[in-house]
Each structure stands twice: as C-alpha cells, then as structure tokens.
Amino acid sequence: MKIFILGDSLALPRPHRIKSFNPEVDKELAVHFDETYGCLLQNELLNAYPTVRFSVTNRAQRLTTIKDIADQFSDHLFYFQPDVIVMQVGIVDCWIRDELGGKQLVDIVEFEQYYHAILTLLQKRPETKLIVVGICPTSMKMEMRYPGILQQISLYNQVLKSGENHHQVFFMEMESYINSHNPQVYLLPDDHHLNKKGNELISRRLVEIIKAFQENVTGCKMFETDAELSYKHFIKSHEIFPYFGDNLYNLIYLSYQMQDWGKTVEYIKFVRMNQIQHPALPQLVDMIKEQMNS
C-alpha cells in the first residue's frame, strides 16, 4: 500500500527555534524525522502487517498552501498512483498576516475553489483514498494577537469537512483534541506546529483508518475462496473504523448472503444514521429491502 503525505510544515521535522536554528549548535530538534507522524505511521503499519508492503512518502513542504497542492495534485495522483493520500493543509492559507495588512494568503473563497479542484481530480482515480487532516486550533494568546483567528480556522475546517463522503474522502478533525487554553499538550510553544505528542496523536488516528482500509482489502481478496474468513475481515475493519463506506457495502452484501439478517439490518441502519455515502449502496439496500419484503 502506497501512502503519500501532502501538506505544510506540520508534517515535517522541526527545530526548537527555526528562525535562529544553527545546525552546529542545535543538535537536538523539537521533533526529529523519526518522530513525525509519517514515520510513526509507517512503522506501526509494518509492525501490524509484516507481510504487507507499506510505504509512506512524505512530500510535505514548508509554507505550502492549498493552491500549491492543487497545482501539483495531478502529478501526485496519476504519476505516483498512491493508494492513500494524507493531506494536511490550511493553517498557512488562513493565518492572518501583518505583512498583508491583516489579509490571508488564500481567502476562504479561493480555498474552497482549490479544494473542489482537488476533489474533482481525485474522482478520476476512485481507487485512491484521501484522508484530510483538519487544521489544528491555535492558542488564546494567538487569538488575542490576531483577533478572529480561531473562527477563521473553524471556517476553513468546515470547507475541508464538506468534502467528506466516507467512501473516497475522509476528514480527521483536530478541534476536539486541541484546547486553545492549553494547546501545548499537542503543539510546540509556537502554538502552531505539532510536538511529539501531536505527531503521535495524528499517527494513531491515521493508523486506525488505514488498518480499516487494509482489512477491507484482505476481505475482498478472500471473498471468492473463503466467504466466512472474508466476512471476519470486514467485521474487523468495521470495528476499527466503522465509517468506511466500501467496507459497509461489503458487510451488508455478505451478511445478507450468509443469512445474518439481523446484522444486515443493523449495518443498513448505521449507514442511514451516519449518512454514509457510497455510489452502489442505495441500489444494494433497495435490492435487499425488496427481497426481504417479497
């Protein structure tokens, strides 16, 4: 499974004081490469699935905006053909900048336009999944310095979340984890970049989603030869991350075929309750309802 990380400096190693960093003096970084969430993610997946080939390629760059990602997204998507893209972007775009007279590098209208351009391209390669990491809130200290910045972060996050469909696009929100009154549980003292615990947090949450992807893939491969074992992998995927539309489709289809009708109804209710989208789910559910009522 090929995983690509696209984004800004939050996915990168970080010195304690980047503006005064001296490599001859500052040997210890705030976050080393092997402590970034991309590196942690790869190690965890390789440990969990030693027989599966996982690769995590980190192509994040400092000061990256969603425009930068949109401009290069076609190359990343079609030339490298990743199975999963992790995209963490937005804080550079929405930050209120003194040098711009209080304006932002990318206003929210442009931000939404570039995001839609990315999603449109993504649809052309439906086998690639996109996990969008939400923008981390900053501190109350920064809110006092840049009034309205927390609201801007929330508004830009709403744009990112709007693309989620639980089928090809998944949104990983960060606002419920980072407390603006005490952000340094997960952020460095600049109230912006991830510290070691912040990287561990994102890695843990990515591992859950990608493990669910992998269990679903394994279940699909076993479907023709061992339906019961295939069903177990689909169930495991659902237990790890229940909001995965592809896996729910497989669970509904296979539970019905195996006459586990109580579970079939349970999964259908879950889909409706959580508004899970999948291009083939409505047709499957209608077919099952018709057969059950006949």
Rank of each mutant, 00 (worst) to 15 (best):
M140N: 13
G198C: 06
V86P: 03
Q259I: 00
K129N: 06
T138K: 09
D260L: 13
N182R: 12
R145L: 15
G163M: 07
D75S: 12
D98V: 02
S294W: 06
S180I: 04
M1D: 11
I118C: 07
M174G: 06
K263T: 02
S20V: 01
I96Q: 06
E112V: 03
V217M: 13
N195S: 03
F111Q: 05
N216Q: 13
A70Q: 10
S230F: 03
K103H: 11
V89H: 02
K141C: 09
F33T: 14
D93G: 13
L100Y: 09
F73E: 11
T225V: 13
Q42E: 15
K67M: 07
T225C: 08
E239N: 08
L201C: 11
I268N: 01
F241Y: 14
I210F: 04
D75V: 13
D75L: 08
E200F: 09
I210Y: 04
G245K: 03
E208A: 15
N179W: 01
K196N: 12
I178N: 01
F80L: 14
R204L: 12
R17P: 01
K289R: 06
K232Q: 15
H278C: 03
K19C: 04
L119N: 12
D26R: 00
P147I: 02
Q259C: 03
S180Y: 02
V185F: 10
A212G: 08
G148M: 11
C39P: 00
E290W: 09
L46G: 04
I209M: 14
D286I: 10
I153E: 00
E44Q: 14
V132K: 00
P82W: 02
A280V: 08
P279G: 11
I85Q: 04
I268W: 01
P15N: 00
R14L: 04
L122W: 11
D71R: 11
L206Y: 07
Q113A: 14
K103W: 02
N47C: 06
N157Y: 02
L6K: 05
N199R: 04
P50V: 05
A30K: 02
L10W: 05
C94P: 10
V265M: 02
I240N: 04
M287G: 15
Q184L: 11
L206C: 12
H193G: 08
F78W: 07
V89F: 05
Y115T: 14
N157E: 05
M172C: 07
V31W: 01
M292I: 08
